[in-house]
Amino acid sequence: MKHKTFFWFFLPTALAMLVFIAAPILSILMQSVFLPHEQVVIEVESCGPFGCSTTTSVDQEATAKLWEEAPLGRFAGMQVYFDRGHLAVAEVGEAWSTTQSWGEFFGTLGNLPLYRALAFTLTYTFVSTPLLIILGFAIAVAVNNLGPWLKGPVIFFSLLPFVVTQLIGSLILFWMVDARGVIGTFIQWIADDPDLSLKASTPLTWIMLIVYGVWNSAPFAFVVFYAGLQTLPQDTLESAMVDGATRWQRIRYVVIPHIMPLVTFVLLIQLMDNFRVFEPIIGFSAEAHATSLSWIIFNDLGGETRQLSSAAANSVLTIIGVSILLAPVLVRTWRESKAKT
């Protein structure tokens, strides 16, 4: 295909991605280094028959003029990044020098919004991703052992947690684990504690969210691995059996190497998707115990006062986080592509 033809074919999709993905990234970079103008305050002295009093009021005209001259706001440099709501450089430095132990230090960090969100996001990403891969693989192997007529319905019901909207899926589970819901009652019965509430405890909330994450994404891993199992090299399996390999050895040395590329694929997709965890936090109303990077951006943007600078700084930091997370995979792809040429 000629360059020119390629260009015209590719133009619409390239434009869409440039305008609505690349440009917003630049937009948050810009917004994060500007702060809104402070309102211009003027003192007005009003004198009546009983003496004079001064009142302060906002000079709307002057404020509007400021915005007109510099529509982005006042330049703040890295100030937003370093303040308490974000990287909190001063607070972290102080905690570093005053705290005695690591536990105490991380405890102090846990009170700073960004670090709190980061802690949950990373825990969620690195705990639920391996778990869902293992669960997905186990389901795939088990379903593969079943008779063929059962496979269709099994795949149908397995897909449900994955296909249903994250917010609705988490709400449905949330209603069930409510202290008055069926799973909540069941857990209280197991723990023999009628006052137990998953919502009230931070560790239990984290576990609940991670369980939700595994429940939601295991079907994806299952379907991908199941498709991989259909293309298993039967000859290799046969010869492994002839050589006396046990079932476990066959899984370990034939099946797992065969689906390893698929594991990488699921890992890549799930790292991306779990890092943006957001909807379960809304669905489980877990803000008090767990926040994520996407959630703090949402929180900045919502409400009466839209804190655009803060949201932008958080977004930039989130994107840096994603880049660090995916750098190993991208570097490997780049090396492979270089090796090919």
Binding site: H3, F6, M17, S27, F278, L293, L301, S315, L330, T341
Partner: peptide, 28 residues
């Protein structure tokens, strides 16, 4: 041509950007 490979990689990077960060860029 080789640029198709890089366009696909660029698309993969765009795929990795959390939508919420983009929303922060859209509002203003």
């Amino acid at each position: 041509f080789r640029y198709t490979f890089w366009l696909l990689i660029a698309a993969l990077i765009f795929r990795a950007v959390p939508p919420m960060t983009l929303v922060a860029g859209y509002l203003l």
